[in-house]
Design a protein around this nucleic acid. Structure first.
Lengths: 149, 149
DNA sequence: TCATATTAGTTTAATGTTGAACTATATGAT
DNA sequence: ATCATATAGTTCAACATTAAACTAATATGA
């Protein structure tokens, strides 16, 4: 079953690339799903922990931008992570509108323990591409992603 | 703000490509969002209508696979489209487990009317890439997507 | 033929997600 | 100082999504 679009060659080319792009992204995400479920985390929760591990403490708004979710959603995600004792929120002294979110010891241990396996799963997924192809894919995707919002 | 991962060069390469891939897919989807909202459709509903337009009548299971949602979700999506008078369900004569879903006249007019603009938005998004780059991106994504489930 | 397994679709409960209205804090111009 | 504006985060209601249990129809094969 193959999707076929009518239209100009330009449109066919763009749409074909778009469908492939979506499916590729989904298939890699699917490859990491099981691991995240096993840790009793939602994808959003995992995304927050991962961002904090690699970037250090962040405010809710930055986290929302990082994991591509709404601000309102982040309130809940952070709340649930806090209930699980994986992150802590502290008001920022210089501007009390901001809440700085950071990993607790428990949270850091969890995500740091998961990450190597997570990285390996993604590495395996991308293993069908040569290093050069991976770099080219990244370049093309960055060009595409940067052009919009 | 740039995400930086520690790890082997192989892991860094794969993770970098993965992040770029996700963001590229999201940014193109975002470019089409407004148009879909204006038509009072959810992304899933739009996906179903689009699939029916290009592929003809399909059963719920095939639609689920096409738009990457669960079977249970498709029950609701199709139900809502039926309520709006955009699709119709009919049991298949030879195997009554299957429900064939097809566009109504109204549904066909709606999606056929939307699609040119939709295609143009995607075409514009991909316009930052040359035709050759678009084809290369598609090739790489297909290779990546096909390798998994 | 009958039991078993398989498959398509539905139902249900739990949860995630969003946009919009809202609160609290900070900034800037006059 | 003060008023308007902007920004971070929260709340809320509506809705989407999923996994799992379920029903109905079909296929299989002893």
């Amino acid at each position: 079953m193959r999707t076929r679009y009518k239209g100009t060659p330009k449109a066919v080319r763009a749409l074909g690339a778009f469908v492939a792009l979506q499916r590729a992204a989904d298939s890699v995400i699917a490859a990491t799903q099981e691991e995240i479920e096993r840790a009793k985390l939602t994808p959003s929760q995992f995304g927050v922990l991962e961002a904090l591990l690699h970037l250090g403490p962040l405010c809710a708004k930055d986290l929302a931008r990082k994991i591509l979710r709404s601000k309102g959603n982040l309130t809940l995600v952070i709340e649930n992570l806090e209930k699980s004792g994986l992150v802590a929120r502290t008001a920022r002294a210089d501007d009390r509108r901001f809440l700085t979110v950071d990993l607790t010891g428990k949270g850091r241990r969890l995500i740091a323990g998961m990450f190597p396996r997570h990285a390996r799963l993604i590495e395996e997924s991308f293993g069908v591409l040569t290093p050069k192809e991976q770099e080219e894919l990244r370049r093309l995707c960055r060009k595409l992603g940067k052009a919009q919002g």
